[in-house]
Structures are given as C-alpha cells and as structure tokens.
C-alpha cells in the first residue's frame, strides 16, 4: 500500500506536466536539407502555414538546400576552381530546382510548374516572399556554405537571414514544439 494519496500523486503529475509544457515554445524548427523542387515546396508551404497560424518558424538550411537560396543575378568573383565547379553544377535559386522524381531533363519540372499555375498553387518564389513578410527566420549552415564554396554575397536578399552552426539549430529545436527534417 502506498502512503501517498492519489490526490497528491495527481497533483505532482500535473505540476510535472505544466513544467513540460512550459519548456516548449509554439515554434517550428525545420532542417531544410534537400534542394529538390518538391521538397522545398513542401518545406515552404509548411513554414508559411505555420506562420499563418502564428507559430514562430525557424528554418535551418543546410547542405544541398542552400543552393535554393542563391540569387541567380548575383555573380561572384574570386572563387577557387572547385568552388566554381560546385557553383555551376548546383541550382542558382528556387527557379532552377529540379523535381526529385519524374524530372525528365526538366520536362517534368516544367509540367509541374504549369500545373501549379493552373491549380493556383503558390510558387516557391512567392512562398519565400510571403515567408519573409510573415517573419519566418532563415539560418544557413556556415559549414555547408564553406564546404560548397558558396559566398554570403551570392545569397538572396531576405530580411531575417543569418549564418550559424549546428548548436544554434539544436538549441532552437530543443525549445520548439515541432521539429521537422526535409
């Protein structure tokens, strides 16, 4: 027989539950890893949807996904040969992203883009500007930038864009109520 009454145990549990709830913010932390058009689209729709529901959104762009944030009109000089090679083979911004399936040398991508217009699905370009308006934060992995030879000067103009390391993502994700990897 337990000496602690049921009432006391419930009270303790409720207190612990309150503490647990308090630790999590109404915040979405997402790792955006892929630079596939379809996956970037999903990441942006979820982000804009969350922001529309007044959830704070922090995106951590790493590896391939960083190429989706390049500005095709910004030309960078002074890169070494390997960086130039990487740079030329990867997309310059969302307009150049490929589909993860059925891309068919760009035919599939063009078809999807056409269908999206037909069915009023917002393009990644528009979603990015809406995300900016709604205050979605973008953090870019500094190590990946360095690895692929990307320069900060070739990234898009986005109001809340900064560079960070994995610890920032982990700290953000740790206090967020939703964490995703795309």
């Amino acid at each position: 027989m337990s000496e602690i009454s049921l009432e006391q145990r419930v009270e303790t549990l409720e207190k612990q539950l309150r503490e647990l709830k308090d630790q999590r913010k109404d915040c979405l932390s997402m790792v955006v890893f892929s630079n596939d058009l379809d996956k970037i689209l999903a990441a942006l729709i979820i982000s804009v949807g969350a922001a529309a529901m007044d959830t704070e959104v922090r995106l951590f762009f790493t590896f391939w996904a960083i190429s989706a944030l390049r500005d095709k009109n910004k030309k960078i000089k002074g890169k070494d040969m390997k960086s130039r090679m990487f740079g030329s083979m990867l997309p310059h911004g969302t307009e150049q992203l490929k589909l993860s399936k059925m891309n068919m040398e760009g035919i599939g991508r063009d078809m999807i883009r056409g269908l999206m217009k037909e069915k009023n699905v917002t393009s990644p370009e528009e979603l990015l500007s809406t995300a900016a308006e709604l205050g979605v934060k973008i953090n870019i992995c500094e190590m990946s930038m360095d690895l692929m030879g990307f320069k900060k000067e070739e990234m898009i103009d986005y109001p809340d864009l900064s560079y960070c390391g994995v610890a920032t993502f982990l700290a953000d994700a740790g206090e967020s109520s939703i964490q995703l990897f795309i």
């Binding site: 729709i45 529309a52 529901m53 007044d54 009023n120 917002t122």
Partner: peptide
C-alpha cells in the same frame, strides 16, 4: 482563387 496555404493566409 488560391490553394493551401492561401485561404489560411487570407483569413489570418
């Protein structure tokens, strides 16, 4: 005239 998440945004 909009698809997800357009209506939600418009409502917000």
């Amino acid at each position: 005239g909009t698809s997800c998440p357009g209506p939600l945004l418009a409502a917000k």
